[in-house]
Computed example of a mutant assay.
Amino acid sequence: MKMIVGLGNPGQKFDQTRHNIGFIAIDELVHRHNLPLTNKKFNSVYATGMINGEKVILVKPTTFMNLSGEAVRPLMNYYNVELEDVAVIYDDLDLPAGKIRLREKGGHGGHNGIRSLIDHLGTKEFKRLRLGIGRPVNRQPVVDYVLQRFHKDELQDIVDSVKKSADAVEAWLQEPFLNVMNDFNR
């Protein structure tokens, strides 16, 4: 069983904001494979089902971003999901809008959702799909920037990156993550 976790903040106020691109990517997978997020447990909404012959759990933590690990660890334990079978999708300020980058491990890079996951999982070694949201301009505070909706001129790039991240997840369900990384990081 593979667990794909999209990071974001719960509630309509945060819907479609930069920080919630992980949620948007999970929604893309939900839509593609008709797996509704009807399960609620351990501070998460999630779907279980099959994608490309692999049993999956698609997860949106309902904790706020900074507490994401509090939702993910209990779900992993409940479903007996191994760390190597977890992938996390989240926003990255250091990538331009529309770019994606896959990694097998790494630090938190200042991302509090990833920091929480590292703390609760006890390791930095979990698969990541980083979706670029760009950096703020004109000295706008980062906290304000990540909670903004995307600008019209970015929307097509964001849609493309979300679709590409869903493609990468689907590929990972059929081949080793390292191969997927090599294909999608070009």
Rank of each mutant, 00 (worst) to 15 (best):
K105T: 12
H108Y: 10
M76N: 07
G98F: 02
E82V: 11
P74E: 09
F150E: 01
R115P: 12
G122S: 05
A97V: 10
L102F: 07
H151K: 14
S116P: 01
L129Y: 13
G113D: 05
D119S: 10
V88G: 05
R128Q: 08
Q156T: 15
V137T: 14
L117Y: 03
F150V: 00
L75F: 09
G98H: 02
G132Q: 05
P136A: 02
A97T: 07
D92K: 05
G122Y: 06
L95H: 00
K105Y: 11
K127Y: 09
P96S: 01
G132R: 02
Y78P: 08
F150L: 01
I114L: 14
F126Y: 05
I89N: 08
L75S: 09
D91V: 04
Y79N: 08
Y78G: 05
N77G: 12
E84K: 14
Y78E: 13
Q156K: 15
V146C: 00
D153K: 14
D119A: 08
H151G: 11
R115S: 12
A97G: 01
I158M: 13
L155R: 15
G106S: 10
D92C: 04
H111P: 08
I114R: 11
H151D: 15
E84I: 09
V142N: 01
R115E: 11
V142Y: 03
K152F: 14
L129A: 14
I114S: 08
N112A: 06
V81A: 05
H108Q: 11
L147Q: 00
P96V: 01
G107P: 10
G132W: 01
R128T: 07
N138D: 13
Q156D: 15
A87N: 08
D157A: 15
H108E: 08
V81M: 05
P136H: 02
D91L: 03
D91Y: 02
P141C: 03
L83T: 13
K105Q: 14
L95G: 00
G110Q: 05
A87K: 09
V143T: 12
Y79I: 04
F126H: 07
E104M: 12
L147K: 00
D119P: 02
T123S: 14
L93V: 02
N138I: 06
R128C: 11
L129F: 14
I158R: 10
N138E: 12
K99Q: 13
R139T: 09
V88Q: 11
P96D: 05
L121D: 04
H151V: 10
L155T: 15
R115D: 07
P136F: 00
G110Y: 07
L155W: 15
P74G: 08
F150I: 00
D94S: 03
K127R: 14
G98W: 03
D144L: 02
M76R: 04
G113K: 06
Q156V: 14
V137A: 11
